[in-house]
Simulated assay, not measured.
Amino acid sequence: MAGKIDARLAELGLELPTAPAAAGAYVGYVRSGNQLFVAGQIPIWNGEIRHQGKVGGDLTLEEGQEAARVCALNIIAQAKAALDGDLDRIVRIVKLGGFVNCPADFTDHPKVINGASNLIGDIFGEKGAHARFAMGAGSLPLNVAVEIDAVIEIA
């Protein structure tokens, strides 16, 4: 039986990708007590890298926001894997940390990461209201546009 969050994803017409495997000497998530730490997620969809380049240069703000949405879906996919498929065990999305690959004069980092924040809010409602940082980076792994990590409170 699908839970409330799975039903909400379906209602929004969203599907989750397969949780990406770690690409280095780390794991995709760590559970510690009632917290779940999700490693930085990039805009990769079932093994296919999407949204490469600098936002505000190679990519538009809107393309950056879409990259952030893909990152958010990967965060949720990692959480689903960590919670044995039960997303209803998420008590709160506590914090997102967002990095935007952009030129030095780009200043709309928060607007880019809003792509993830708004999606998290749409899916989780009040439980999705989170603290956050959004900052620019001169480069990101694989030249992706965005990377986002998360801290999640779980039951």
Rank of each mutant, 00 (worst) to 15 (best):
S32Y: 09
F99Q: 11
P20Y: 03
A104C: 02
K127Y: 07
A39P: 12
E126C: 12
E15M: 14
A23T: 14
E15L: 11
A104N: 12
A21K: 13
D105I: 13
A129S: 11
T18E: 12
K111L: 13
A82D: 00
K54C: 12
P110K: 07
D88T: 08
H130W: 05
E126T: 12
D84E: 09
A22P: 03
V38G: 08
A67D: 01
D86L: 05
Q65I: 10
V30Y: 04
A134D: 06
A137I: 14
L142K: 14
T18V: 15
C71L: 07
A19F: 01
F37I: 15
M1T: 13
K111T: 07
R92N: 12
F99A: 14
L142F: 11
G85S: 00
L9D: 02
L83G: 01
G115N: 01
E153W: 03
E126I: 12
N101S: 14
D122M: 07
N143R: 11
E62M: 13
L87I: 05
C71D: 03
G85D: 00
V151H: 03
G115F: 01
H130M: 14
N118D: 07
K54T: 10
I148R: 04
R69H: 06
V100W: 01
I148V: 15
A23K: 13
D86H: 06
D58E: 09
G98C: 08
R69T: 03
E63V: 14
A155F: 07
A82S: 12
A2P: 15
D122W: 08
G136R: 04
G24L: 06
N46F: 09
F124W: 04
G138S: 14
E62V: 11
N114W: 01
N46P: 14
Q35K: 13
L14Q: 06
R8V: 10
C102Q: 03
N34M: 05
A81Y: 02
G24E: 00
L16N: 02
Q35S: 12
A104F: 12
N143F: 13
G136T: 11
V38N: 05
H130Q: 10
L9G: 02
H51Y: 15
F124H: 00
G98V: 03
A81Q: 11
E11I: 03
V144Q: 05
E63S: 09
G13W: 02
A116L: 09
L59M: 09
G24W: 00
V146K: 01
N46D: 10
E63L: 14
V27C: 09
E153I: 06
V55N: 09
A77I: 02
V144R: 08
V27R: 10
M135P: 05
A22W: 00
A68Q: 02
A10C: 09
R8Y: 05
N74T: 11
S117R: 11
N101D: 03
A155V: 11
D122K: 10
E126Q: 09
